[in-house]
Design a protein around this nucleic acid. Structure first.
Lengths: 197, 197
DNA sequence: ATATGAAACGAACGATCGTTCGTTCAATTT
DNA sequence: AAATTGAACGAACGATCGTTCGTTTCATAT
């Protein structure tokens, strides 16, 4: 069966398959070094058919950016509705570290960020989500500092940015060495978090 | 004078001029989106002449990477020979922040890092210099902790990486908003440094 | 003055790029 | 059974890519 022209179970499935293949290509070769032909060949799809599903190369990276944004949005939701501030910050740290240290995530983030520097509409949702994430972090940091008497040296917003910097930096190093986050990294990050509070 | 074909004062000067123009182009459009013709046109140089000075596009980015590495190397030298550890760490923080928050530096670092992920020999010197920088930081952190009695929660190497993460993260945000580092950013970073020690 | 070679030039090459488009064909509707 | 639909196809387009190369120009050495 399916000798020459196989039809997918659904159009959505094929669409998804193309996007997933594009992700692999973009990770391996980068956005601008990946040709539509590369994606088509690897996906087992004709060149022209890609254009039946996507308006062009831009829409592919935009779709991927949207998927990443969605993943972050879930994390932000969980953080916003947490009760215990310190606990919430710690579990966020662990979860965000795991997500970021996926080499695919790191590589794609670089590509998307680099692209959004010159093509703002692609990075917009990405940055919007990040702002929301920061807002949620600030609220929990404020909560965690509730017991403190003295004036904090680092503002809540700086503290939130710093936390993301540390997690993302750690994740980049792990991704670069192709290692998964272990107890050691999580412990160091949580120690740093407590010190920054 | 110099109606049609101007000769530079020296070959080195022209070489440098081409590299500097390439830097501008790579920052504005990215490495892979910049054509040799773009560089030639902007530098006021013929297309073919670029190849009289450089073996090709790769040599251009390699030369730029080497220049960046040199800048970091100077910083590391100063850090390694400092006497007062805490003071040394603080002035390093300020200087490194200034260097990193140059939009040119940020953009190029992304380009070089992205390129080195797929072309190891380009990023090698870059990473080597970073290792040396980390080693120098660790030594000064150890020195700064000399008076402490209790066991530190964060190892010297983690602390060094974290410091770089914070500076680079702050610098990226500044570069993105096209702002220069002010007293506020330096103060926040130095506060974070003290807390991490 | 003449010869030499480095520096500058730009047309041209083959390859590849993103995209278009006319066609084929399998599934669905009539 | 016939007509309709739209997914799949791949040749072809114009543009641009990195690079090559034969030629011109000009400072310097002879």
């Amino acid at each position: 069966m399916n000798e020459k022209r196989s039809r997918p179970e659904s159009v959505d499935a094929r669409r998804r398959h193309i996007v997933e293949t594009a992700v692999i290509c973009f990770i391996e070769q980068g956005f601008h070094q990946t040709g539509i032909r590369d994606i088509a060949k690897r996906a087992g799809v004709s060149l022209g058919n890609i254009y039946n599903h996507f308006s062009g190369k831009e829409e592919l990276i935009a779709e991927i950016a949207a998927l990443e944004a969605e993943e972050l949005s879930e994390l932000q939701e969980a953080l916003a509705h947490a009760k215990n501030p310190l606990k919430a910050l710690e579990t966020f740290t662990e979860r965000y570290l795991v997500i970021c240290s996926d080499p695919a995530y790191t590589a794609l983030s670089y590509e998307i960020l680099a692209e959004s520097a010159r093509n703002p509409e692609i990075g917009q949702g990405f940055l919007e989500n990040r702002e929301n994430l920061l807002k949620a972090l600030e609220r929990q940091i404020l909560g965690a500092r509730n017991g403190q008497t003295e004036m904090p040296e680092i503002s809540e917003s700086d503290c939130a940015e710093f936390l993301l910097d540390l997690i993302e930096g750690t994740a980049s190093r792990l991704a670069f060495m192709e290692k998964k986050p272990g107890r050691k990294e999580k412990k160091a990050l949580k120690a740093a978090l407590r010190k920054l509070l």
